[in-house]
């Protein structure tokens, strides 16, 4: 069990001593019981930090945002930024470090272990507790405890946990400056269980499935916006030039390659999502945020999981395992599979 007060004290301490300029964490939100991300800069604000099953956001996203806004660095005096990170979030920080997004000294990781549980899937909760809108959620051993108007409701965590958490193998943040919570043995679903089930289906059925999914995509780009790895200033689907410098010529502006159209059509939607999956290969840490925020419920994790498993099984590559690892697609091994080549 994580002692929230200890976490708050830690955050206050490092702000107090000036070791960091800001702490990115969660606080009580304004949308129902869900927590919301917050950046605090004063020690006294640490009291507002929370840690509960609704801390689903991958806060590494905000480290990325931080870097994109140099002006903001003035606020915390260019000091390192602390981030409260779950196992998956810490892996995301590792990938960002791999990609030189910032230096190891620029970030202070306050690890929080999900221990024997994970974060809440609100859609599942609606099925487990139909009609109930809890005011708060808390961890309690293997259970989630919800505060409702009719008192406490206790739900076994595995019944209301995110799918991603059920398959998680990195619930304890490996990369950290300080860590709260224990590394607890977990016994939920085998990694890639859903993926393996899906792969069993015949090709025609898989295509029908994806066709249905991608026809629904409205290209709101929520998946891209929430992803800490989608930090390019200009995305492959942007048909306008987003990166324009004084040196950019008119010809360059006119000549942007339009690999994929920005508007929603099946072919372009699938082109976009496939490109995204390929661009995330070896980088996606399966935080599952893209899937959580998708307004039309496209199971995006399945695509990313597929790449993650191939990276692991075909290339022995574990995204976010080490800062020193070269990128998956920037490296190779002599015994990479090649049987598919004629």
């Amino acid at each position: 069990m994580i002692d929230l007060n200890a976490l708050r004290t830690q955050a206050a301490d490092i702000l107090e001593t000036g070791e960091v300029g800001a702490v990115i964490g969660w606080r009580r939100g304004s949308r129902g019981m869900a927590a919301e991300p917050v950046a605090i800069v004063a020690p006294e604000e640490a009291a507002s930090l929370v840690w509960d099953p609704t801390c689903f956001h991958n806060l590494a996203l905000y480290l990325v945002e931080e870097r994109k806004k140099p002006a903001q660095r003035q606020v915390h005096g260019g000091k390192p930024i602390a981030i409260v990170a779950k196992g998956c979030d810490a892996r995301a920080v590792t990938v960002l470090l791999q990609e030189n997004h910032f230096g190891r000294d620029d970030v202070y990781v306050i690890g929080v272990s999900c221990e024997g549980t994970g974060v809440l899937d609100e859609r599942k909760l609606a099925q487990v507790l139909p009609g109930v809108e809890p005011d708060g959620a808390a961890f309690d051993g293997d259970n989630f405890v919800f505060a409702t108007s009719e008192g406490e409701r206790r739900v076994p965590a595995r019944e209301a946990m995110m799918d991603r958490c059920l398959e998680c193998r990195n619930a304890h943040p490996k990369l950290n400056n300080v860590v709260f919570g224990e590394e607890t043995p977990r016994d939920f679903d085998a990694p890639f269980a859903a993926l393996k089930r899906f792969e069993q289906r015949p090709a025609a059925e898989r295509w029908q499935f994806w066709q249905r999914q991608f026809e629904r995509c409205i290209r709101c780009f929520a998946c891209r916006s929430v992803c800490p790895m989608c930090y390019c200033d200009e995305c492959v689907v942007d048909s306008i030039n987003l990166v324009v410098t004084p040196e950019t010529t008119a010809a360059e502006k006119a000549d942007r390659v339009r690999w994929i159209e920005r508007s929603a059509s099946r072919a372009d939607n699938i082109g976009y999502h496939m490109t995204r999956a390929l661009h995330l290969a070896g980088r996606c840490v399966d935080c599952g945020e893209c899937e959580r925020v998708c307004p039309v419920n496209i199971p995006l994790r399945l695509l990313n999981n597929k790449m993650e498993r191939e990276a692991r099984e075909a290339f022995g590559y574990e995204p976010g395992a080490s800062i020193d690892l070269p990128a998956l697609v920037a490296s190779f091994r002599d015994d990479d599979p090649g049987q598919f080549i004629r």
Partner: peptide, 25 residues
């Protein structure tokens, strides 16, 4: 294209000739 480069070093790792390095990110 410097404006697009984020300094992730993937090209540096991939280059068979060690012809690429980072300068100011």
């Amino acid at each position: 294209r410097a404006a697009h480069c984020t300094g992730c070093e993937m090209c540096v790792d991939a280059c068979p000739y060690d012809a690429i390095h980072l300068e100011n990110g």
